[in-house]
């Protein structure tokens, strides 16, 4: 893990906090960065009873086996990335704890647990036109009959590799993006959002907006 005092978000140079508003008002797209979220890559065979039991013990829930779904708790959840691969997402600075718990519970299993927190950052989009902005650059069918809360997908946005995760019906989306593409993706999304009205919010405002609408579900 990077020393906390050296740690810098890949969008730091955009000074998003200086542009953040307390109330996004009528903006159709509300965006913000979720910084330093803990992300742990978990790999193993869910059909192996020892792996399934170990993962469930360490996480408190079983990693989802249905493709492109998310399962878990409010502050820690797992995105399905492949039949033997998950991304465990949690509150900032919990990655060491998650890695240690998974490694201890999976000792002796054919499994891999890797801290990948610094590899990507998360851009959160919400607002009435969040879905329209994502549809502009991403081939995933986002219609509610095909996609919805608790679903995730790996795809491209304007050619950049992203992991898309829908959290609620507002709709709110998290876009996980490689840190070297974060600046590009943010600028593309901001440009694509201009016609709908675009507002930047800081993380606490973003979390409050989310909780006001959907007290249940993942943060």
């Amino acid at each position: 893990m990077v020393e906390p005092y050296l740690r810098q978000s890949p969008l730091d140079h955009l000074s998003l906090d200086a542009r953040a508003v307390g109330d996004p008002g009528g903006a159709g797209v509300v965006a913000g960065e979720r910084r330093f979220i803990a992300k742990v890559s978990l790999r193993g065979d869910p059909a192996d009873p020892a792996f399934a039991a170990g993962a469930k013990t360490a996480l408190g829930f079983a990693p989802p086996v249905a493709p492109n779904t998310v399962d878990g708790k409010r502050d820690r959840y797992a995105l399905w990335l492949g039949p033997d691969e998950w991304l465990v997402v949690g509150a900032p600075d919990t990655q060491d704890k998650t890695v240690a718990a998974l490694r201890a519970a999976l000792a002796g299993c054919h499994a891999a647990v890797t801290d990948v927190s610094e590899g990507r950052t998360i851009i959160r989009l919400t607002g009435a036109h969040a879905r329209d902005v994502i549809a502009k650059g991403c081939p995933i069918d986002l219609h509610p009959r095909a996609f919805g809360p608790g679903r995730c997908a790996q795809s491209r946005y304007a050619r950049a590799l992203v992991i898309l995760h829908q959290l609620d019906e507002a709709p709110t989306f998290d876009l996980h993006v490689d840190r070297s593409f974060a600046d590009y993706l943010w600028r593309v999304i901001e440009d694509a959002s201009l016609e709908y009205g675009f507002a930047v919010v800081a993380e606490p405002v973003m979390a409050a907006l989310k909780r006001r609408r959907t007290p249940q579900g993942q943060d």
């Binding site: 492949g82 691969e85 997908a153 790996q154 795809s155």
Partner: peptide, 8 residues
């Protein structure tokens, strides 16, 4: 290969 997806 589903290169930008599940990579299978």
């Amino acid at each position: 290969v589903h290169a930008a997806g599940c990579r299978r």
